[in-house]
Design a protein around this nucleic acid. Structure first.
Lengths: 181, 181
DNA sequence: AGCTACATGTAACGAGTTACATGATTAT
DNA sequence: ATAATCATGTAACTCGTTACATGTAGCT
């Protein structure tokens, strides 16, 4: 899997601490990869043992010391190799699909409530992404290549959430129509 | 997680063997949940120990014996309880997002090839889903409630794959435009 | 003679989640 | 005072993947 590769990627841009990485996973990376703090620290330890990254302790005053990791040559070539390999879609595992398929076994109101809840969650995420789009990427032509790449990732997030909202609407409408029969 | 619940759901319709379940995961369930044979057998053993399902050996002639599982009362109420709980979106973990963000670090051709590959994969899946739509669900008004629910799940799959294809096209176009600069 | 479908499992490993543990600084 | 931010980790557990193991029936 690609937690290793996601960390490798982040470090290919600049050296970072585990904490920095976690922050970036929470913010920038959240529309394509999610990882917990614990997962990150564990992965970093493993990657250092494998020789892909090397950590250097930085002594700070007034704050706890931190350990900044940077890519080794082996790490960089591992990253570049991975960039060239074809990637397959992530396996889908979606509770709501299971529930939708089985919705005929429960009162329709139960499924409708569920769909409305999910619509709300996806819509809120969509708003966040669209705000980001407005704030950082509204001047597309002036963006650097790097920024354009980041923007395309955000576009994936926007599409993904929009698509969920649209499907929820479709399903809510279909179920509501049945209710009247 | 919901492998337990997916199995519970399937058995809420009718008793099945591990092998049957695996077949259904491969076919019907593939647009919302994926599980390997090994995972299914392990989960079934665990669920039986927990008292949610009970297995009965069926002796066959000319074929290996099989073990058919059915829901216990505890299993059924566990299932119904779960149907009423709000579900949160699955965490996104997508290699292609990572690669897209880092695409500025490699020759543009590398990323283009990758995007074309992924477009192809999603397009093929889309065709399969659309064929299923034509074959089984073209007469929407005449479908049973159960079939309508299954159809809405398929619609989720169709939207999902279409959306991927559309994004790949967007990203390919954007990257290609840069190439000419 | 070799492939596919039927049918069930064990073992080892890798990835993700949850709980626990510590401790200083800064902002409200 | 107390909550949030900075900063790093251990331990136990669950879930997912890959490899191994076995054996029959039917089709080409």
């Amino acid at each position: 899997m690609a937690l290793t590769h996601t960390i490798l990627s982040a470090l290919a841009e600049s050296p970072l601490t585990g904490y920095d990485l976690w922050k970036r996973f929470e913010n920038e990376f959240n529309c394509f990869w999610r990882a917990s703090q614990q997962q990150i620290y564990r992965e970093l330890a493993k990657m250092e043992k494998q020789g892909f990254i090397s950590g250097q302790v930085i002594i700070q005053q007034g704050r706890p010391n931190k350990k900044e990791y940077s890519l080794t040559d082996a790490g960089m070539s591992h990253f570049l190799e991975w960039m060239g390999e074809p990637s397959e879609p992530t396996a889908i595992r979606e509770d709501l699909g299971v529930k939708m398929k089985m919705a005929y076994l429960v009162p329709r109101q139960v499924m409708l409530k569920e769909l409305q809840h999910r619509r709300h969650v996806h819509y809120q995420q969509l708003l966040k992404f669209k705000e980001k789009e407005q704030t950082f990427y509204s001047n597309y032509d002036k963006l650097s290549l790097q920024e354009k790449c980041s923007y395309l990732v955000l576009r994936r997030g926007i599409r993904y959430e929009s698509d969920w909202v649209a499907w929820c609407d479709e399903a809510i409408e279909a179920l509501s129509a049945l209710e009247k029969e």
